[in-house]
Design a protein around this nucleic acid. Sequence first.
DNA 1: ATGAAAGCGCTAACAA
DNA 2: TTGTTAGCGCTTTCAT
Lengths: 327, 327
Amino acid sequence: MATIYDVATLAGVSPATVSRVFNGRAVSEDRAQRVRDAAEALSFVPNRTARTLRRQSSEVIALIIPDIENPFFTALARAVEDRAQAAGYSVVLCNTDDDPVKEATYLQIAISENMAGVILVPASDESDLSTIIASGRPVVTVDRTTAFDVDHVMIENEPAGASVTAALFDAGYQRIACIAGPETVVTAIDRARGWRSVVERRGNYNPDLFVRSANHRLDGGRAAMAELLASPERPDAVVATNNLMGVGALQVLNEYGLTPPAFGVGVIGDLPFTTLSPGLVTLVHLPTRDLGTTAVGMLVSRISGHREPARTVLLPGELAAAASVRS
Amino acid sequence: MATIYDVATLAGVSPATVSRVFNGRAVSEDRAQRVRDAAEALSFVPNRTARTLRRQSSEVIALIIPDIENPFFTALARAVEDRAQAAGYSVVLCNTDDDPVKEATYLQIAISENMAGVILVPASDESDLSTIIASGRPVVTVDRTTAFDVDHVMIENEPAGASVTAALFDAGYQRIACIAGPETVVTAIDRARGWRSVVERRGNYNPDLFVRSANHRLDGGRAAMAELLASPERPDAVVATNNLMGVGALQVLNEYGLTPPAFGVGVIGDLPFTTLSPGLVTLVHLPTRDLGTTAVGMLVSRISGHREPARTVLLPGELAAAASVRS
DNA sequence: ATGAAAGCGCTAACAA
DNA sequence: TTGTTAGCGCTTTCAT
């Protein structure tokens, strides 16, 4: 692999001049051309490792997510990547599996690799950001928060939970249960709170009997749905606080012969790769792309030296498909 | 951030000794302990950038995939990540969007960042690996091949195409069409060839009229299915050569009121997050995990200096659910 | 077993 | 505008 010294020798200039050409600094046109020609001839590619060591910062952003197999997060990753690319950054994707230890490891790596910044979906509200904050690397959290005072961009979760629940009541369902995510995730808590507020107002039952906490994956939704169907006070509808739990619930309902609209289903998030007819399930569409692009914007502004206090951005979900009236 | 010099000073040893402790080289026990204590006290973390520059190789593997929103590839990523982690490597995930230019950029970055190696799902059979090969970095391709002579791990695609088609004939379907992937992707070609071989043997029609080439995503499957349904010689069943095209086909069939088994559907790959009852769709289950772990194994052996000629590993698909007999 | 010192490839003062 | 030079933090000969 050729270095700037090789290029410099061939072009008859100093290494510094080569560096300047590749960093867009002022160099006389004829010399610049000689450098470009020499670089071309040697198929020179700047060594990013050396540049990073010298500059103490790379052009790489870490995107740390809890579950790479959840389409919500891959869509987020797409958005982040597109926007980051446009701003001149590469994105490395790190999967924590909701494991705070893995998360801590990746944060450590981000520091140790001198990455430009981190976009993080925290594994839980207990996630420890003290080390990365102390390192001075910018951090933005997305979709979830922690106790730490950093930029974050969130969904309006409580209204999302409320609107999907209200839509199910409007459609004629009476006993609407809730499959909520883990109690350590702010997003799940807020969405469940939205469900509860509507139930307390319009429902004729005790919400506590109709809520189940589950992991955010398919099997979590399945287990919770099965439990709800087995309970003495059987609900006639359910709200799942994320996409995969919604799919799990639908799978179990299908196995019981209870497909919508015979049993009402509301989901906060979009059903990935669904083969269901539209309108059967009440959905709150989430602005995944905006979530990602906003986060990149905030992060890049921090990387460029922005020093204001931590900012919060709230993005609304959108009730996408009204449930059919109950058959 | 503390450096080995800080640690060395505090521990009263030389920087070289600190380095040795962190690299498991022989150091007397008392000094090693002093170093560990000092490192702990300063919360020292080795700077990977410096190490990489010096060693000319990092502990990072690039995994380059065509579509991060396809669950097949995210499952692959999971497998690769788990196995790589166990071998002491981090994985950075790069999404090419089937774009040879993006692919070339990521390969360039892998070189420029001194990454330990690359696991690549080539965007097409025209993908140019000459640069990365010339750089000396090990490369393993997965799921698809190129003209270049590198290690690769593949599915037995032609048998997969044949077995799913045969199963549909067995179930009583007569005119089985094929939604094939892009003609630039070896995997798609081979699977379609498997379909064709069975049709030529058992079908009473001209295969050419019943095959459509589509992009590997949802919309590709939708468009191809719509076209097949509109054609004068309407098929009574279809084989999709990947998962997302299968979902797209099912969506369109559903819109036409043609749900299986009224219309036969075979898919090579698993239906992601399906809410369909099992057995309605004929599937070939793909050994995604094995694909990933095998690739990591091959790559790591190359990184460790293995110098044999390029190896090929073939993994079989598995006919997972027989179609119900046609109603 | 340990330390001194060179150098990986680049950038950024500083001088000219 | 251009070149000289120091140094980012680490690993690794080479001595001792």
